[in-house]
Simulated scan of single mutants.
Amino acid sequence: MKLVDILFLLTLAMVLSTAISSDLDPLQDLCVADLASGVKVNGFTCKEASKVNASDFFSSILSQPGSTNNTLGSLVTGANVEKVPGLNTLGVSLSRIDYAPDGLNPPHTHPRATEVVFVLEGQLDVGFITTSNVLISKTINKGDIFVFPKGLVHFQKNNGNVHASVISAFNSQLPGTQSIAATLFAATPPVPDHVLTKAFQVGTKEVDKIKSRLAPKK
């Protein structure tokens, strides 16, 4: 193989790796999401430029703690393109996560983004699992950051006796979240019991018990 061919392949590999590392780069100054249009083409269509204003780029949604009075003792408040239309095509978003004492943000993944958390208050035990089933975990405190690689299962747990909170940053306007337990045991239509019993090596009663606890409240 000629040197020029090798250089071409290396350049192509670098370009492709950059292109798929996060959301696509915008091709215009801005493209405020027209959430009412109902049209999605790997993102949202653009609002008419004459209708764009500062409120499209502003939100105070993360300024106040979320209510953690729920089964898990945690609440994620997202500031993504669905809440801040000006984020459309910009490839970034934020979330705030609040944790009651003993609160858990359960094992989940973000299929479209890497996440980095910055601790506002409290202490958390955090970790992610590699595809080799290796747990990488650490206790983080106020002012610390921790990174969760794109697509890997991860969690945060408040083992303290006071409230904790973090700000999460993502390299996607809409990173998506798949909670492992809810994905498997509360899907619609449901994942067949025989799949779950074999995968988790448990009986049907155990599967039904988990499903009943994760079923959406009516």
Rank of each mutant, 00 (worst) to 15 (best):
M1D: 08
M1L: 11
K2T: 14
V4D: 12
I6E: 15
T11V: 13
T11I: 14
T11K: 11
L12Y: 13
L12T: 14
V15K: 14
A19D: 03
I20T: 14
I20Q: 01
S21T: 14
S21G: 07
D23P: 04
D25E: 12
L27Q: 14
C31H: 02
V32I: 09
A33H: 10
D34V: 02
D34Q: 04
L35C: 04
A36N: 11
S37E: 04
G38H: 01
G38A: 02
K40P: 00
V41M: 13
T45C: 07
E48C: 07
K51M: 12
K51W: 01
K51A: 15
K51Y: 03
A54K: 12
D56T: 00
F57N: 05
F57S: 05
F58W: 13
S59F: 06
S59V: 03
S59M: 08
S60C: 05
S60P: 00
L62K: 09
G66A: 11
T68G: 02
N69R: 08
N70A: 08
N70F: 09
N70P: 02
T71W: 09
L72D: 10
L72H: 10
S74W: 06
L75S: 12
V76G: 01
G78Y: 04
A79C: 03
N80V: 06
V81K: 08
E82M: 07
K83I: 13
V84L: 12
N88T: 08
G91D: 03
V92I: 13
V92G: 03
S93L: 00
L94T: 09
S95V: 07
S95C: 10
R96F: 04
R96I: 04
D98I: 12
Y99Q: 04
A100Q: 09
A100P: 00
G103I: 09
G103M: 10
P106F: 13
H108D: 04
T109K: 11
H110G: 06
H110W: 05
P111Y: 08
T114L: 10
T114D: 10
V116G: 03
F118K: 07
E121N: 14
G122M: 05
L124W: 06
D125A: 10
D125R: 11
T131G: 11
N133G: 00
I136P: 00
S137W: 03
K138E: 11
T139G: 04
I140W: 08
N141K: 15
G143I: 05
F146N: 05
V147H: 00
F148P: 01
G151Y: 11
G151V: 04
L152C: 09
L152E: 08
Q156S: 11
K157R: 15
N159D: 07
N159E: 08
H163V: 05
V166I: 15
I167W: 05
A169Q: 00
S172N: 10
Q173V: 01
P175W: 08
P175F: 05
G176T: 00
I180Y: 04
I180G: 01
I180L: 15
A181P: 00
A182N: 14
T183S: 15
T183V: 02
F185N: 02
T188R: 11
P190W: 02
P192N: 06
D193R: 01
H194A: 06
L196R: 04
T197C: 10
K198H: 10
A199W: 07
V202G: 00
G203R: 10
G203F: 06
K205L: 10
E206Q: 14
D208Q: 15
K209D: 13
I210R: 07
K211A: 03
S212H: 08
R213K: 13
K218E: 13
K218R: 13
